[in-house]
């Protein structure tokens, strides 16, 4: 540390990180302060807490059927996550444990399909759902997301670490393949499931474009759509919008702080 150049470098590093941390955290602070201010004050850039919090909350809850909206959001994200984990972990396990040349080829083509953009699917998916009379239903939102190639990969990678002796022992004990999956594999892999739950739940909770296309009546809308709707009003009431934004961020924020390590693990899953 006697080297003056090293000292300058060190100071620059801290300044860079402090600035980055400030920029990263400031919008959260802005969201919290904004919820306590009137819309005019938010637009004028008032950065101190104001007295409009209660008014904003009241306006939010009178303009939004919150119990219904929360139910929609939690139902879609919850059921969607459970089905995604089941279907995708079955496939990840299947691809890793039962190898065949043909299935390896299919797995390889899944890799290519990972780069199919949703933008190219939304129009035909919408027409498909319209033909099936499923517009404005939960299943129209949930079904296309259930088979996630990303999560199939994630489980296949994780399954490589699953001890084969456990499976052999279970076979000798006479367990059927589905029983091995259900009673041996799933409990052993619970931390993989936890990490996958976090990323899938978050993706479902935050999903915007597909629900925007499919959910058309107010009583079917998710919290994400409602907050977006409040924002795109001709003159949005920003204080009220901030209250909505806080509610929309809260679940994922709570999960993040409770399960920080798992959270990061889940995100890293694909490249392990």
């Amino acid at each position: 540390m006697s080297n003056p150049l090293a000292l300058i470098g060190r100071t620059a590093t801290y300044l860079l990180l402090l600035l980055a941390a400030f920029i990263s955290v400031f919008p959260f602070f802005w969201m919290l302060v904004g919820a306590t201010n009137t819309s005019a004050d938010v637009i004028k850039g008032k950065a101190t807490p104001g007295g409009a919090l209660w008014t904003n909350i009241v306006v939010f809850f009178t303009s939004v059927d919150m119990p219904r909206i929360l139910f929609n959001s939690f139902f879609i994200a919850g059921v969607g996550t459970a089905l995604t984990l089941l279907v995708s972990s079955l496939a990840g396990y299947g691809f890793e444990m039962f190898r065949s040349r043909f299935r390896e080829k299919i797995f390889g083509s899944l890799l290519l399909m990972l780069s199919i953009p949703f933008a190219a699917l939304m129009v035909p998916l919408f027409i498909m759902m319209a033909n099936l009379k499923m517009i404005n239903t939960y299943q129209a939102i949930i079904l296309p997301t259930v088979a996630s190639i990303f999560i199939v990969f994630y489980f296949r990678q994780a399954t490589k670490a699953f001890p084969h002796e456990l499976r052999d022992a279970a076979r000798i004990d006479g367990l059927k393949e589905w029983q091995i999956f259900l009673f041996v594999y799933m409990p052993v892999m619970r931390s993989t499931y936890a990490a996958a739950t976090i990323i899938v739940f978050m993706a479902n909770w935050n999903n915007y474009l597909w629900p925007l296309i499919v959910l058309q009546t107010n009583e079917m809308k998710t919290l994400t759509l409602v907050v977006a709707g409040l924002t795109s009003a001709y003159t949005p009431d920003f204080g009220v919008v901030m209250v909505g934004a806080i509610f929309a961020t809260l679940p994922t924020l709570v999960i993040f702080f409770l399960l920080q390590r798992r959270f990061v693990e889940g995100m890293l899953g694909a490249v392990k």
Binding site: A21, V25, P27, W30, N206, V241, A245, A248, T252, F256
Partner: peptide, 20 residues
């Protein structure tokens, strides 16, 4: 702190940026 933005929903942070 630097990871924290990833936790927000796209809609919520878009709203916040619009007002900022």
């Amino acid at each position: 702190a630097i990871f924290l933005p990833c936790v927000t929903s796209l809609v919520a942070y878009s709203v916040v940026f619009k007002s900022m």
